[in-house]
Protein backbone atom coordinates (compact mmCIF):
# COMPACT_ATOMS: atom_id res chain seq x y z
CA UNK A 1 0.00 0.00 0.00
CA UNK A 2 1.68 3.23 -1.07
CA UNK A 3 1.67 6.19 1.29
CA UNK A 4 -1.20 8.59 0.92
CA UNK A 5 -3.68 5.89 -0.08
CA UNK A 6 -6.74 5.18 2.02
CA UNK A 7 -8.48 1.93 2.77
CA UNK A 8 -11.19 3.71 4.75
CA UNK A 9 -13.04 6.92 4.00
CA UNK A 10 -16.43 8.51 3.54
CA UNK A 11 -17.67 10.58 0.60
CA UNK A 12 -20.46 13.16 0.73
CA UNK A 13 -21.96 11.58 3.83
CA UNK A 14 -25.25 12.66 5.30
CA UNK A 15 -25.52 11.23 8.78
CA UNK A 16 -28.77 11.28 10.70
CA UNK A 17 -30.59 9.56 13.51
CA UNK A 18 -34.18 9.25 12.37
CA UNK A 19 -34.82 12.77 11.07
CA UNK A 20 -32.21 14.53 13.18
CA UNK A 21 -29.42 15.36 10.77
CA UNK A 22 -25.98 15.35 12.41
CA UNK A 23 -23.82 15.99 9.38
CA UNK A 24 -24.31 16.78 5.71
CA UNK A 25 -21.97 16.41 2.77
CA UNK A 26 -19.16 15.21 5.00
CA UNK A 27 -16.06 13.83 3.32
CA UNK A 28 -13.21 12.27 5.26
CA UNK A 29 -10.27 10.04 4.48
CA UNK A 30 -8.25 7.97 6.93
CA UNK A 31 -4.64 7.78 5.73
CA UNK A 32 -3.27 4.24 5.82
CA UNK A 33 -1.04 3.36 8.76
CA UNK A 34 -1.95 6.63 10.47
CA UNK A 35 -3.03 7.18 14.04
CA UNK A 36 -5.95 9.41 13.13
CA UNK A 37 -7.68 11.30 15.92
CA UNK A 38 -11.03 13.04 15.54
CA UNK A 39 -11.63 16.00 17.84
CA UNK A 40 -14.36 18.55 18.28
CA UNK A 41 -16.79 19.94 20.84
CA UNK A 42 -19.64 17.85 22.25
CA UNK A 43 -22.32 17.00 19.71
CA UNK A 44 -20.14 17.96 16.74
CA UNK A 45 -20.79 14.57 15.18
CA UNK A 46 -17.43 12.93 15.82
CA UNK A 47 -18.81 9.79 17.42
CA UNK A 48 -21.52 9.65 14.77
CA UNK A 49 -18.84 9.79 12.09
CA UNK A 50 -17.01 6.93 13.80
CA UNK A 51 -20.22 4.90 13.87
CA UNK A 52 -20.68 5.48 10.17
CA UNK A 53 -17.07 4.52 9.43
CA UNK A 54 -17.52 1.31 11.39
CA UNK A 55 -20.77 0.24 9.63
CA UNK A 56 -22.85 0.76 12.81
CA UNK A 57 -24.78 3.62 11.20
CA UNK A 58 -25.95 3.61 7.61
CA UNK A 59 -25.51 7.05 6.00
CA UNK A 60 -28.71 8.59 4.58
CA UNK A 61 -26.66 9.76 1.61
CA UNK A 62 -23.12 9.21 0.41
CA UNK A 63 -21.06 6.11 1.08
CA UNK A 64 -18.38 4.82 3.39
CA UNK A 65 -15.78 2.96 1.36
CA UNK A 66 -13.67 0.18 2.83
CA UNK A 67 -11.03 -1.09 0.42
CA UNK A 68 -12.82 0.64 -2.41
CA UNK A 69 -16.22 -0.96 -1.81
CA UNK A 70 -19.32 0.35 -0.06
CA UNK A 71 -19.07 -0.88 3.52
CA UNK A 72 -22.81 -1.62 3.58
CA UNK A 73 -22.47 -3.83 0.54
CA UNK A 74 -20.18 -6.10 2.55
CA UNK A 75 -21.30 -8.60 5.19
CA UNK A 76 -20.87 -7.76 8.86
CA UNK A 77 -18.49 -10.66 9.23
CA UNK A 78 -16.33 -9.70 6.26
CA UNK A 79 -16.03 -6.14 7.58
CA UNK A 80 -15.19 -7.48 11.05
CA UNK A 81 -12.12 -9.22 9.66
CA UNK A 82 -10.75 -5.92 8.32
CA UNK A 83 -12.06 -3.31 10.69
CA UNK A 84 -12.41 -3.51 14.47
CA UNK A 85 -14.26 -1.15 16.80
CA UNK A 86 -13.94 -0.47 20.48
CA UNK A 87 -17.30 1.15 21.32
CA UNK A 88 -17.77 3.66 24.12
CA UNK A 89 -19.47 1.12 26.29
CA UNK A 90 -19.44 -2.62 26.19
CA UNK A 91 -21.02 -5.10 28.56
CA UNK A 92 -19.02 -7.84 30.24
CA UNK A 93 -21.32 -10.83 30.84
CA UNK A 94 -21.57 -12.02 34.45
CA UNK A 95 -18.92 -14.47 35.48
CA UNK A 96 -16.75 -14.17 32.37
CA UNK A 97 -12.97 -14.41 32.74
CA UNK A 98 -10.47 -12.16 31.01
CA UNK A 99 -9.22 -14.95 28.73
CA UNK A 100 -12.77 -15.92 27.77
CA UNK A 101 -13.66 -12.33 26.93
CA UNK A 102 -10.55 -11.77 24.83
CA UNK A 103 -11.26 -15.06 23.05
CA UNK A 104 -14.58 -13.65 21.84
CA UNK A 105 -12.56 -11.35 19.60
CA UNK A 106 -11.91 -14.41 17.45
CA UNK A 107 -15.60 -14.65 16.51
CA UNK A 108 -15.32 -13.23 12.96
CA UNK A 109 -12.65 -15.81 12.16
CA UNK A 110 -14.76 -18.74 13.27
CA UNK A 111 -17.67 -20.52 11.68
CA UNK A 112 -19.71 -23.66 11.91
CA UNK A 113 -16.91 -25.66 10.34
CA UNK A 114 -14.02 -23.62 11.61
CA UNK A 115 -13.92 -24.09 15.36
CA UNK A 116 -11.40 -22.99 18.00
CA UNK A 117 -7.82 -23.63 16.85
CA UNK A 118 -4.25 -23.32 18.08
CA UNK A 119 -3.97 -20.22 15.95
CA UNK A 120 -6.89 -18.66 17.87
CA UNK A 121 -5.21 -19.62 21.14
CA UNK A 122 -1.94 -18.02 20.05
CA UNK A 123 -3.60 -14.79 18.93
CA UNK A 124 -5.49 -14.51 22.22
CA UNK A 125 -2.29 -14.97 24.22
CA UNK A 126 -0.44 -12.43 22.10
CA UNK A 127 -3.25 -9.90 22.44
CA UNK A 128 -3.28 -10.27 26.21
CA UNK A 129 0.51 -9.91 26.32
CA UNK A 130 0.43 -6.81 24.09
CA UNK A 131 -2.02 -5.08 26.43
CA UNK A 132 -0.38 -6.36 29.60
CA UNK A 133 -3.38 -8.33 30.83
CA UNK A 134 -1.80 -11.79 30.51
CA UNK A 135 -1.36 -11.93 34.30
CA UNK A 136 -5.10 -11.38 34.68
CA UNK A 137 -6.13 -14.15 32.25
CA UNK A 138 -8.07 -16.20 34.81
CA UNK A 139 -9.53 -13.27 36.75
CA UNK A 140 -13.18 -12.33 36.39
CA UNK A 141 -13.71 -9.16 34.37
CA UNK A 142 -16.17 -7.85 37.02
CA UNK A 143 -13.35 -7.76 39.57
CA UNK A 144 -11.02 -5.55 37.56
CA UNK A 145 -10.41 -1.82 37.88
CA UNK A 146 -11.55 0.55 35.13
CA UNK A 147 -8.09 0.82 33.60
CA UNK A 148 -7.56 -2.93 33.59
CA UNK A 149 -10.97 -3.49 32.09
CA UNK A 150 -10.32 -1.07 29.24
CA UNK A 151 -7.08 -2.91 28.47
CA UNK A 152 -9.04 -6.18 28.37
CA UNK A 153 -11.53 -4.73 25.88
CA UNK A 154 -8.62 -3.46 23.81
CA UNK A 155 -7.10 -6.96 23.94
CA UNK A 156 -10.39 -8.35 22.64
CA UNK A 157 -10.36 -5.89 19.74
CA UNK A 158 -6.72 -6.82 19.02
CA UNK A 159 -7.59 -10.52 18.96
CA UNK A 160 -9.86 -9.66 16.06
CA UNK A 161 -6.60 -9.06 14.11
CA UNK A 162 -7.92 -6.25 11.97
CA UNK A 163 -5.55 -3.93 10.12
CA UNK A 164 -7.90 -1.07 10.97
CA UNK A 165 -9.06 -0.35 14.51
CA UNK A 166 -11.57 2.33 15.52
CA UNK A 167 -11.77 3.55 19.11
CA UNK A 168 -14.66 5.64 20.44
CA UNK A 169 -13.37 7.73 23.34
CA UNK A 170 -11.16 4.97 24.72
CA UNK A 171 -9.97 7.10 27.64
CA UNK A 172 -13.34 8.23 29.01
CA UNK A 173 -13.95 7.30 32.66
CA UNK A 174 -10.22 6.72 33.28
CA UNK A 175 -7.96 8.78 35.51
CA UNK A 176 -5.07 10.68 33.93
CA UNK A 177 -2.47 7.94 34.52
CA UNK A 178 -4.66 5.28 32.94
CA UNK A 179 -5.57 7.62 30.08
CA UNK A 180 -1.89 7.98 29.22
CA UNK A 181 -1.38 4.25 29.67
CA UNK A 182 -4.11 3.45 27.12
CA UNK A 183 -2.87 6.08 24.66
CA UNK A 184 0.75 4.86 24.97
CA UNK A 185 -0.55 1.39 24.28
CA UNK A 186 -2.41 2.62 21.19
CA UNK A 187 0.71 4.43 19.97
CA UNK A 188 2.72 1.23 20.40
CA UNK A 189 0.14 -0.81 18.48
CA UNK A 190 0.28 1.76 15.74
CA UNK A 191 4.07 1.85 15.54
CA UNK A 192 4.96 -1.78 16.20
CA UNK A 193 2.09 -3.63 14.56
CA UNK A 194 1.51 -1.15 11.76
CA UNK A 195 -2.21 -0.94 12.43
CA UNK A 196 -4.26 2.01 11.28
CA UNK A 197 -6.01 3.52 14.30
CA UNK A 198 -8.88 5.99 14.33
CA UNK A 199 -9.81 7.37 17.73
CA UNK A 200 -12.31 9.91 18.96
CA UNK A 201 -10.71 11.82 21.82
CA UNK A 202 -11.94 14.62 24.06
CA UNK A 203 -8.60 15.95 25.20
CA UNK A 204 -7.06 18.23 22.61
CA UNK A 205 -3.57 17.91 24.08
CA UNK A 206 -3.73 14.14 24.01
CA UNK A 207 -4.88 14.33 20.42
CA UNK A 208 -2.04 16.70 19.47
CA UNK A 209 0.52 14.50 21.18
CA UNK A 210 -0.51 11.08 19.86
CA UNK A 211 -2.15 11.68 16.50
CA UNK A 212 -0.25 11.43 13.23
CA UNK A 213 -3.34 12.81 11.48
CA UNK A 214 -5.89 15.06 13.09
CA UNK A 215 -9.46 15.72 11.99
CA UNK A 216 -11.13 18.70 13.70
CA UNK A 217 -14.91 18.86 13.48
CA UNK A 218 -17.59 21.34 14.37
CA UNK A 219 -21.33 21.23 13.67
CA UNK A 220 -21.00 18.18 11.47
CA UNK A 221 -18.27 19.71 9.29
CA UNK A 222 -14.58 19.01 9.02
CA UNK A 223 -12.93 22.32 9.90
CA UNK A 224 -9.36 21.15 9.41
CA UNK A 225 -7.47 17.92 8.79
CA UNK A 226 -3.79 17.09 8.67
CA UNK A 227 -0.62 16.92 10.72
CA UNK A 228 -1.34 18.14 14.29
CA UNK A 229 1.73 20.38 14.19
CA UNK A 230 0.16 22.46 11.44
CA UNK A 231 -3.51 21.99 12.30
CA UNK A 232 -3.47 22.90 15.98
CA UNK A 233 -3.28 26.68 16.17
CA UNK A 234 -4.85 29.23 18.49
CA UNK A 235 -7.14 30.31 15.65
CA UNK A 236 -8.33 26.76 15.02
CA UNK A 237 -9.04 26.13 18.70
CA UNK A 238 -10.98 29.39 18.83
CA UNK A 239 -12.93 28.42 15.71
CA UNK A 240 -13.66 24.83 16.73
CA UNK A 241 -14.12 25.08 20.49
CA UNK A 242 -14.73 28.81 20.93
CA UNK A 243 -11.88 28.81 23.43
CA UNK A 244 -9.28 31.58 23.51
CA UNK A 245 -5.88 30.01 24.12
CA UNK A 246 -2.19 30.02 23.45
CA UNK A 247 -0.49 27.15 21.67
CA UNK A 248 3.05 26.39 22.82
CA UNK A 249 5.44 23.51 22.22
CA UNK A 250 4.91 20.51 24.48
CA UNK A 251 8.18 20.41 26.50
CA UNK A 252 8.12 16.59 26.37
CA UNK A 253 7.41 15.95 22.71
CA UNK A 254 7.54 19.24 20.84
CA UNK A 255 3.95 18.73 19.67
CA UNK A 256 1.44 21.58 20.04
CA UNK A 257 0.21 22.14 23.59
CA UNK A 258 -2.99 24.09 24.09
CA UNK A 259 -3.00 26.40 27.10
CA UNK A 260 -6.43 27.98 27.67
CA UNK A 261 -6.45 31.71 28.28
CA UNK A 262 -6.72 32.66 31.93
CA UNK A 263 -10.01 34.52 31.58
CA UNK A 264 -12.57 34.98 28.85
CA UNK A 265 -12.71 38.40 27.30
CA UNK A 266 -15.54 40.39 28.80
CA UNK A 267 -16.73 41.48 25.31
CA UNK A 268 -17.28 37.93 24.13
CA UNK A 269 -20.97 37.19 23.69
CA UNK A 270 -22.35 34.79 26.26
Amino acid sequence: MHPGSTRLGGTALTLAYDRRVIAENLTVAVPDRSFTVIIGPNACGKSTLLRALSRMLRPSAGAVLLDGRDIHGQSARAVARTLGLLPQSSIAPDGISVAELVARGRYPHQGLLRQWSREDERVVEESMAATGVDDLADRLVDELSGGQRQRVWLAMALAQQTPLLLLDEPTTYLDIAHQIEILDLCARLHEEQGRTLVAVLHDLNHAARYATHLIAMRDGRVVAAGDPATVVTADLVAEVFGLPCRVIDDPETGTPLVVPAARRRATEPA
Binding site: M56, S75, A76, R77, A78, G105, Y107
Partner: peptide, 25 residues
Protein backbone atom coordinates in the same frame (compact mmCIF):
# COMPACT_ATOMS: atom_id res chain seq x y z
CA UNK B 1 -28.95 -23.90 19.32
CA UNK B 2 -26.69 -24.44 16.31
CA UNK B 3 -27.37 -21.51 14.02
CA UNK B 4 -27.71 -18.60 16.41
CA UNK B 5 -26.06 -19.54 19.72
CA UNK B 6 -22.52 -18.32 18.92
CA UNK B 7 -23.85 -14.98 17.69
CA UNK B 8 -26.21 -14.71 20.68
CA UNK B 9 -23.17 -15.17 22.92
CA UNK B 10 -21.63 -12.13 21.22
CA UNK B 11 -24.86 -10.13 21.66
CA UNK B 12 -24.29 -10.28 25.40
CA UNK B 13 -21.38 -7.87 24.92
CA UNK B 14 -23.72 -5.12 23.74
CA UNK B 15 -25.13 -4.39 20.28
CA UNK B 16 -22.18 -2.25 19.19
CA UNK B 17 -19.53 -4.73 20.26
CA UNK B 18 -21.44 -7.62 18.72
CA UNK B 19 -21.81 -5.66 15.49
CA UNK B 20 -18.11 -4.82 15.51
CA UNK B 21 -17.36 -8.53 15.85
CA UNK B 22 -19.37 -9.26 12.72
CA UNK B 23 -22.78 -10.22 14.10
CA UNK B 24 -25.62 -9.07 11.81
CA UNK B 25 -27.37 -7.62 14.84
Amino acid sequence: LVGCAPALRMMELGDDTAGALGVPV
